[in-house]
Computed example of a mutant assay.
Amino acid sequence: MIDIVKLSKAFGARTLWSDVSTTINHGEMLALVGPSGSGKSTLLNCIGLLEKPDAGEIRYDGKDITRFGRREVRNFRRGVLGYLFQSYALIENATVAANLDVAVKPQRAIRRETGVTIADALDRVGLAGREKEKIHHLSGGEQQRVALARLMVKQPALVLADEPTGALDHANATTVIDILRELSDAGCAVVIATHDDRVRDRCDAAFAVNENSLLG
Rank of each mutant, 00 (worst) to 15 (best):
E142S: 02
R112N: 15
R59Q: 06
N93T: 12
E72V: 08
L158N: 02
A94I: 07
V153G: 01
E142L: 00
E72Y: 12
A147C: 10
P106D: 10
T66A: 06
Q144T: 07
G79A: 09
A89C: 14
T117A: 06
V96K: 10
R145G: 05
L81D: 13
K154I: 05
P106E: 07
F76N: 04
V102L: 14
D61M: 13
R67N: 14
L49N: 03
N45F: 03
D120Q: 11
Y83R: 09
I135L: 03
L151E: 04
N75R: 13
I135E: 00
A121K: 01
I118K: 10
H137K: 04
L151Q: 07
C46A: 03
R108P: 06
E92M: 04
R78N: 14
A55Q: 09
D101W: 14
E51Y: 08
Q143P: 05
V73I: 14
V125A: 03
I91R: 14
A89I: 07
S87N: 13
A94E: 12
Q86L: 13
Q86M: 11
R130Q: 07
R74D: 15
T95M: 12
G69R: 07
E131H: 06
P156Q: 06
L127W: 04
V102Q: 10
D54G: 15
P156M: 06
R150T: 01
L81T: 08
E131L: 02
L84S: 10
I118G: 05
R74S: 15
Y88C: 11
K134P: 00
G141E: 01
M152S: 00
T117C: 02
G140H: 10
Q143T: 04
S139T: 12
R67I: 03
K105P: 12
A94R: 14
G62W: 10
G82F: 11
A157Y: 07
R59Y: 05
N45D: 05
A147R: 09
V125K: 03
T114P: 12
K154E: 04
N99Q: 14
R77A: 13
D54Q: 02
L49Q: 05
K63N: 11
V146E: 01
S87M: 04
K63I: 11
Q155V: 03
K63Q: 14
Q107A: 12
E72A: 14
Q143C: 11
P53M: 00
